[in-house]
C-alpha cells in the first residue's frame, strides 16, 4: 500500500502539487486524472522519488520515502516498474535488449533464463519475434508503449506506475493496452497506479487532483 499525505511540490516558486493526499491500495488499479499540465506526471515522479518533494509523506508500507537514504530508495525502486509518458526506451538498444536490460542488471539467472523471461514479457504484450531486433525508432508508437510495458514488468514489480499508457494511440490499440494493464495487474497482483486523462470503466478507483 502506498499512502501519500499532504504533498507539496514547487518548481522555482511555481506551486505544482498543493496538499495532495491519497491512498493506493494493494492489488487494485488506481487512477489519477487531471487536466494537461495539472501535475499528474510530477505527482507520479514524486511518489517514486524522481522529484524531491518540498513537504509531505509518501509511505510505502509505512516506509517514508522522503526520509529514506539513496541506497534504500534504490532498493525500493527495484520493486517498481514504470511506464513513462514518452515510453523512454533506450534508443541505442534493440527491443530485445531493452527488455533484457533490467534483467541483466539485477537478475542472477543464466542468459537463457533471462532471454526466456524477456520473450515471455514481449509475448505478453503481443509482440512477436519479428520485432525483437528492431530499434525503438523503427517501430510504431503503440509498439513502443508495449515494449515499455514489457520492460517494466520484466522483473515482476510489486508496483507498476503507468503514465498515460494510451495517450496518442488509436482507440483500438488503447483499449488493448487498457486490457493488458488490467490483466497484468491481476496476473502479477501488482499495485497499479495509472495516469489517465480520461476515465475507463476498467478502473475502480479514481483520484482527482488539482481541480
Amino acid at each position: 500500500m502506498i499512502e501519500v499525505s499532504h504533498l507539496f511540490k514547487s518548481f522555482d516558486g511555481e506551486q505544482v502539487l498543493k496538499d495532495i493526499s491519497a491512498v493506493f491500495e494493494t492489488g487494485k488499479c488506481n487512477m489519477i486524472i487531471g487536466q494537461s499540465g495539472s501535475g499528474k506526471t510530477v505527482l507520479m515522479k514524486s511518489i517514486i522519488g524522481l522529484h524531491r518533494v518540498d513537504s509531505g509523506k509518501i509511505e510505502y508500507d509505512s516506509r517514508n520515502l522522503p526520509d529514506m537514504r539513496m541506497r534504500d530508495i534504490r532498493r525500493l525502486r527495484r520493486e517498481v516498474g514504470m511506464l513513462f509518458q514518452g515510453s523512454a526506451l533506450f534508443d541505442s538498444m534493440t527491443v530485445m535488449e531493452n527488455v533484457m536490460y533490467p534483467l541483466e542488471m539485477f537478475s542472477s539467472s543464466t542468459r537463457l533464463e533471462m532471454e526466456n523471461r524477456a520473450k515471455f514479457c514481449l509475448d505478453r504484450v503481443n509482440l512477436n519475434e519479428h520485432s525483437y531486433h528492431l530499434f525503438p525508432s523503427e517501430i510504431s508508437g503503440g509498439m513502443q508503449k508495449r515494449v515499455a510495458i514489457a520492460r517494466a514488468i520484466a522483473l515482476n514489480p510489486k508496483y507498476l506506475f503507468c503514465d498515460e499508457p494510451n495517450s496518442g494511440l488509436d482507440p483500438k490499440t488503447s483499449l488493448i493496452i487498457d486490457q493488458l494493464i488490467y490483466e497484468i495487474t491481476h496476473e502479477f497482483n501488482i499495485k497499479d497506479l495509472n495516469d489517465f486523462v480520461f476515465a475507463s470503466e476498467l478502473y475502480k478507483q479514481v483520484k482527482k487532483i488539482n481541480q
Binding site: 515522479k45 517514486i48 524522481l50 534504490r74 525502486r77 514504470m82 513513462f84 523512454a88 533506450f90 522483473l155
Partner: peptide
Amino acid sequence: GTMRITEQIDAIEIMGIN
C-alpha cells in the same frame, strides 16, 4: 542530454540503478 529529456535517465533511475 537526449537521454535526459526523453526520460531514459529517469527510466534507468527507476530501476534502482545509479
